[in-house]
């Protein structure tokens, strides 16, 4: 077919699906986060590995795990600061994301790191961080109910009207 005089026809469209999905065996993590600002990991009954995010079975031993409440403090394993991103988040740049290993956990979870000093030298490996939560009523039992801040900014963040400390 000739490409000359080609004219394309475009149609505007969306794909939209609503969900009400179950968290299955991990439900306790989200319920305790929402109600009590607890960070519940799981510990393998056989090897003792502490999973965070939690798993109700240990993927290494194929054995059951048990719930274990973890402290709200931890350390950045690796991080970045995002300046350009997806359509859902582009209004929020810059923001920092980091893999954070909670004290006593063996695996790291992805979370946002909020800071008054959003620079690579402050948000980096080894930085001690502490969890800050949305106020009761604002928490929905989702990962966005909390975030981390550098330890030395903790008091400052929990004094803001929209947030509170957990412990």
């Amino acid at each position: 077919m000739s490409e000359k005089d080609f004219q394309a026809h475009e149609i505007r469209d969306q794909i939209h699906i609503d969900y009400k999905y179950t968290l299955g065996g991990q439900s306790k993590f989200f319920i305790d986060l929402k109600n009590d600002k607890k960070l519940q990991g799981t510990r393998c009954k056989k090897c003792g590995k502490v999973w965070m995010p939690p798993r109700i079975a240990c993927s290494e031993c194929f054995e059951d795990t048990e719930w274990i409440e973890l402290p709200h403090t931890g350390e950045i394993m690796v991080s970045t600061i995002v300046w350009y991103t997806t359509s859902d988040f582009i209004q929020k740049v810059p923001y920092a994301v980091a893999f954070i290993k909670l004290d006593n956990a063996d695996t790291g979870m992805l979370q946002g790191v909020f800071s008054e000093n959003l620079v690579p030298s402050k948000i980096r490996k080894g930085q001690k961080v502490k969890a800050v939560f949305k106020k009761e009523g604002e928490r929905k039992g989702k990962m966005t109910d909390f975030f981390f801040v550098p330890e030395n900014e903790y008091e400052n963040w929990i004094s803001k009207p929209e947030y509170e400390g957990g412990e």
């Binding site: 995010p53 970045t80 995002v82 997806t86 988040f89 946002g112 990962m143 966005t144």
Partner: peptide, 15 residues
């Protein structure tokens, strides 16, 4: 656990 944090391809590789 990850999408709601604003994770994307570049931030994943950059880690």
């Amino acid at each position: 656990y990850e999408y709601p944090m604003g994770m994307m391809a570049a931030s994943s590789y950059v880690s």
